[in-house]
Design a protein around this nucleic acid. Structure first.
Length: 649
RNA sequence: GCGGGUGUAGCUCAGUGGUAGAGCAUCACGUUGCCAACGUGAUGGUCGUGGGUUCGAGUCCCAUCACCCGCUCCA
């Protein structure tokens, strides 16, 4: 069973040196994390596994490592400066926050739309030649107010109508129905800085000239280097470029530990292919390449130990596609606490980006891609195809994965708690009595809740306004509204079944109590929880079943007795022998059982114990993490055997 | 920004207006023949911060800061 909460992972990561909160001595800084000794090992392994898979094991890929700080022009022409932002608006009445472009406009023909149209006519807004015009109050240089007609903008008329109507307080809040909005604020997600000595006033020509952005995605530096890589490595389309590196986004709502952070690391590929019109019979189309990469990437995750029941492919709807994409399929992992979350996106970006950065692009293509002519660029990112005898701007398929998210995924997937010994009957029997008491209480509470419900159903036949009043009354009177009879019944059934299997089911009961917040509101159940946990704690081991390639420490070496000079010497010698080839850890600071448990918790695949027999025949105990099985291995064979079993040879 | 929650030892947390605690972890010494052993001792705190009430504040009041959860988003 994988991790049941992000909290478990966060605690383990902090306790064992994977991940620490950033700037902790000063109270922390939202959403920035420092990777500790084990974290940096694991990140490195994830990146190496990816690089090996997409660069070394293919014959159509090259690598790249571009600069993080990038000219403002790159992001102007990629579309990020204008569109990589969220338009936010708050309802002043109910304080809900919305993305303004997510509030739906009532469909034409409906009564609400007719009403809105009528009110638009009487407002500062009107539609003129299919464009929205807004009368805005402006101040001139002398502070005198006047009304000025402002064209709200080109493009998607619905969008502008909606924004205009929000600004004019005409569109009702989807939640409370009021029409009282704050200003729409565009929140650009890019971090900016300045290169060289800087004029301080924002928006001045000097400031704009020196402004740079920390890249919000690594992709653009690959596009900027398309021709360099193609020419210097003499590549022919189709080929791809892989890059691993940090990216930065000033997210409005980061969270869920390292799932969404403001500084993160990406593993991205831009795979350059023929545009559809040049594809010959028997060659792959953009759609086929897209499909192939989706499957190839999906299998990579499975190969590193992710269970297929917790990894899915999900094609994005038209509405959620990014401005550059023709189609995108997300790979999503089933995380604890927050459910399915994207760990990789495979996008068909067409020729949008390379065209956007090119000086010379045919007018028809600009129109198709909704691009303006690029007057800043000195290059055209095209390619001469000697087979097709044509010069074209390639299309791209972009598989883009998060390193940080991959780490969280692998940690959640690898996390296991196991009952390694059964508690004594003397301790289990009183527990059974308490469980019975808790069940009895839960059933009583369920009955009460049922009764309350029946009562509250009576006034529901009255008018809607009255019903609201009654509900409000109920909310204050009913001190435990979370008691859902059906949920309690299910909880009781599960608890009873598990009780019958005690002591083997001790851990399951612990998990059940943990995951059932509704049931935990019951007093006897609450009291039960720490008792079960305490008993379980003594009998459980936490083990990270990480794929050996990802484990931060590969082998731990222990002397069975630390004040036995002969044993200690051999253990040190083995440590020195293996150290150049793999990350090893020597530990003699506790009893042997505890040393094993420590290594289990950080996912170390193998432990070596040097004992008295070693001094006689030069063999050691090799203990395997998942099975806890031991075998005797000659010291001379250790390196070879380990390299093999760690998939390093 | 808004709502809710939390701030006491490295971690998990007790703490009734009156001498700041426990368990775990860490370190030292001793002990220890394979799955979270034991003994003895030690380190570690301006109780998030600032103000107020009080003879006296971890505890009551006010302010403030930080973090967590949600108001989602896409690596």
């Amino acid at each position: 069973m994988p991790a049941r909460s992000i909290e478990q992972i966060r605690n383990l990561c902090k306790r064992r040196g994977f991940i620490f909160p950033g700037s902790a001595a000063y109270g922390g800084l939202g959403s920035f994390w420092d990777y500790g000794p084990l974290g940096v090992e694991m990140l490195g392994h994830i990146k190496r596994a990816w690089w090996r898979n997409v660069v070394y094991e293919r014959d159509d890929m090259e690598g790249l490592d571009g600069a993080i700080i990038t000219s403002r022009k790159v992001w102007q022409h990629s579309g990020h400066e204008a569109t990589f932002s969220d338009p936010l608006v708050d309802c002043k009445k109910c304080r809900s926050r919305f993305r303004s472009d997510h509030i739906s406009l009532p469909a034409p023909g409906t009564a609400l739309r007719a009403e809105l149209d009528r009110r638009i006519e009487g407002s500062d807004l009107h539609i003129q030649a299919n464009q929205l015009v807004h009368k805005t109050t402006v101040l001139d240089a002398h502070g005198v107010e006047s009304k000025e007609e402002v064209l709200v903008g080109p493009g998607d008329t619905d969008n502008w109508i909606r924004d205009g109507m929000i600004s004019a307080n005409l569109l009702p809040c989807p939640k409370c129905g009021a029409a009282d909005w704050t200003e729409i604020r565009r929140f650009n997600l890019m971090f900016q800085s300045h290169v060289g000595p800087v004029a301080t006033e924002a928006g001045t020509a000097e400031e704009l000239a020196s402004r740079v952005y920390l890249r919000p995605e690594t992709a653009q530096t690959i596009f900027m280097n398309f021709k360099h890589v193609q020419a210097t490595l003499r590549r022919r389309v189709p080929f791809g470029v892989a890059q691993i590196g940090k990216a930065f986004r000033n997210e409005i709502t980061p969270g869920n530990f390292i799932f969404r952070t403001r500084e993160f690391e990406q593993m991205e590929i831009e795979f350059f292919i023929k545009p559809p019109q040049y594809v010959q019979a028997g060659e792959k189309t953009d759609e086929q390449w897209h499909e192939e990469w989706i499957n190839q990437r999906y299998n990579w995750w499975l190969g590193l130990g992710v269970d297929p029941s917790r990894l899915r492919k999900r094609a994005q709807d038209k509405a959620e596609l990014a401005h550059y994409a023709k189609a995108t399929t997300d790979l999503e992992y089933l995380f604890p606490d927050f459910g399915w979350g994207e760990v990789e996106g495979v996008a068909n970006r067409t020729d949008f980006d390379l065209s956007a950065h090119s000086r010379d692009v045919p007018q028809a293509d600009l129109a198709r891609l909704k691009l303006e002519k690029n007057a800043d660029s000195t290059e055209t990112f095209d390619y001469f195809d000697s087979e097709a005898k044509a010069r074209y701007i390639p299309w791209v398929i972009e598989p883009s994965a998060g390193v940080t998210r991959a780490m969280l995924t692998f940690l959640c997937e690898a996390y296991h708690e196991e009952l390694v010994k059964e508690p004594q009957a003397a301790e289990v029997d009183p527990l059974k009595v308490e469980i019975d008491a808790a069940i009895k209480n839960a059933q009583k509470k369920a009955k009460e809740a049922e009764k309350l419900r029946a009562e509250s159903r009576v006034p529901s036949t009255e008018s809607a306004a009255d019903k609201g009043a009654v509900d409000a009354q109920h909310a204050t009177r009913d001190t435990a509204p979370k008691h859902d009879p059906a949920a309690i019944a299910e909880f009781v059934a599960r608890l009873e079944e598990m009780k019958s299997r005690l002591p083997a089911s001790l851990l399951e009961i612990d998990n059940l109590l943990e995951e059932h917040p509704g049931a935990l509101n019951l007093e006897p159940v609450k009291k039960l929880k720490p008792k079960v946990s305490k008993l379980a704690e003594d009998c459980v081991r936490v083990v990270l079943r990480l794929h050996p390639a990802l484990a931060p420490v590969k082998v731990a070496i222990f002397p069975l007795k630390k004040n036995e000079a002969g044993i200690v010497d051999v253990a040190h010698r083995i440590t020195r022998q293996l150290a150049p080839f793999m990350r090893v850890q020597y530990d003699d600071s506790a009893g042997i059982g505890r040393l094993y448990r420590r290594q289990d918790e950080i996912g170390t695949p193998f432990c070596i114990t040097v004992d008295f027999q070693t001094l006689e025949d030069n063999t050691v105990t090799l203990r395997e993490r998942d099975s806890m099985q031991q075998s005797r291995v000659a010291i001379g064979e250790l390196k070879h055997l380990l390299m093999q079993r760690l998939h390093m040879a």
